[in-house]
Simulated assay, not measured.
Amino acid sequence: MAPRAGQQRGRGPLLPGLLLVAAALSPPAAPCPFQCYCFAGPKLLLRCASGAELRQPPRDVPPDARNLTIVGANLTVLRAAAFADADGEKETVVRLPALTALRLTQNNIEVVEDGAFDGLPSLAALDLSQNPLRALGGGAFRGLPALRSLQLNQALAQGGSALLEKLDDALAPLADLRLLGLMGNALSLLPPAALRLPSLELLDARRNALTGLGTDELRALERDGDLPGPRLLLADNPLRCGCAARPLLAWLRNATERIPDARRLRCAAPRSLLNRSVLDLDEAWTRCTDGNVDGRGEEEELAGPELEASYVFFGLVLALIGLIFLMVLYLNRRGIQRWMRNLREACRDQMEGYHYRYEQDADPRRVPAPAVPASSRATSPGSGL
């Protein structure tokens, strides 16, 4: 009996482990979609990479799926209720009530219609990065009440100003959005709606075309009350320094922690401040002339410090040349003295020669008789004619 009891004690720890493995390997509640990979577990994960063959989201995704990733497909247009079933014209049947993360990168998505994500009540993270978006419905994200993270990196560069206006309308209902990724979209201005999101904690605006932040944008980043404003990533933007950088520089010095990559901010213009750190600018480099903040005004305002620096450098060069000249004179003082002595002797000999010639020319006895013309000699008396 003792060995049998020992065997039972040995099987005790093994049985839960076998049950856990069986649960991990158990199939999901619904079959995995064709050409997708399903990973069972506490959170059902689906990854679909079907290339150009997949032209719309799969319809047979298991209802208990938590994470869905579609990469490399050809989802050109995301129509209304693309991940739900439309019952009539207004009713939407939820097919994926547990889906919390949806990744749709590199799927050649060009159009996202209104209500494209309706029927996803639990979705908290949406990634549409690296898609050539050209049109975005103003109500594209209206059915995402739980959305916390939205990634639109390298997805808005081809849409132009019209797409940015629609983006403002699409972001407005996302009151609980915490993270917004807008990296690599050639943005010259930050979307105003993004700055007004009440719960936004981080706005990634790296690698865009931002030349600076105006007073209106900086004011929008400040919230009333005790709520902290969002953090902002601005590295790799062609920031224009000089007078135009005064609002941003003043805001940075009062809230450096709001821009985690502040040390990476570099000036792209004007040429005299190229690659200079924005945080290293002082009052001499940010003076404004008559409130002029355009390109020509900045060049004028930077002429003073630039010219001053040039004068200092020129003075140092002249001082160095003078020091070298004095050193050469000191090291060759004996030769210079000998050369000056020889020069003085040569000048003295030359002057004595001039003095001797002057004395000879001044003696009347040594003045030669003037020549007499031949005609005068022929007619003179006593010539015998």
Score class of each variant (00 low, 15 high):
residue 312 V to P: 05
residue 308 E to D: 03
residue 298 E to C: 05
residue 366 R to M: 00
residue 343 L to M: 04
residue 302 L to W: 05
residue 315 G to P: 01
residue 353 G to R: 08
residue 345 E to K: 14
residue 327 M to I: 14
residue 365 R to K: 08
residue 355 H to M: 13
residue 300 E to P: 03
residue 318 L to M: 14
residue 315 G to T: 14
residue 346 A to N: 13
residue 358 Y to L: 11
residue 339 W to A: 10
residue 350 Q to A: 14
residue 322 G to S: 05
residue 329 L to H: 01
residue 325 F to P: 03
residue 365 R to D: 01
residue 326 L to C: 07
residue 322 G to I: 09
residue 317 V to S: 11
residue 337 Q to D: 13
residue 340 M to G: 05
residue 328 V to F: 12
residue 359 E to C: 04
residue 354 Y to R: 10
residue 331 L to I: 12
residue 309 A to C: 06
residue 361 D to V: 10
residue 366 R to H: 02
residue 354 Y to I: 08
residue 298 E to G: 03
residue 332 N to F: 06
residue 318 L to K: 05
residue 331 L to V: 11
residue 340 M to E: 09
residue 337 Q to M: 07
residue 331 L to Q: 10
residue 305 P to G: 06
residue 316 L to Y: 10
residue 346 A to Y: 08
residue 336 I to V: 01
residue 362 A to T: 13
residue 350 Q to N: 14
residue 308 E to K: 08
residue 362 A to I: 03
residue 350 Q to Y: 11
residue 355 H to R: 15
residue 366 R to S: 00
residue 301 E to D: 12
residue 298 E to Q: 07
residue 361 D to W: 10
residue 350 Q to V: 10
residue 330 Y to F: 15
residue 313 F to W: 13
residue 365 R to S: 00
residue 360 Q to N: 11
residue 338 R to W: 02
residue 325 F to E: 09
residue 361 D to H: 02
residue 301 E to Y: 07
residue 310 S to H: 15
residue 365 R to I: 04
residue 365 R to W: 00
residue 303 A to E: 06
residue 331 L to K: 11
residue 299 E to C: 04
residue 325 F to G: 06
residue 359 E to K: 02
residue 365 R to P: 02
residue 353 G to Y: 08
residue 305 P to Q: 06
residue 328 V to I: 13
residue 320 L to C: 06
residue 351 M to N: 14
residue 314 F to R: 09
residue 321 I to N: 04
residue 323 L to R: 07
residue 304 G to Q: 09
residue 353 G to P: 00
residue 347 C to D: 14
residue 338 R to A: 07
residue 323 L to P: 07
residue 313 F to I: 11
residue 351 M to Q: 15
residue 355 H to W: 13
residue 337 Q to F: 08
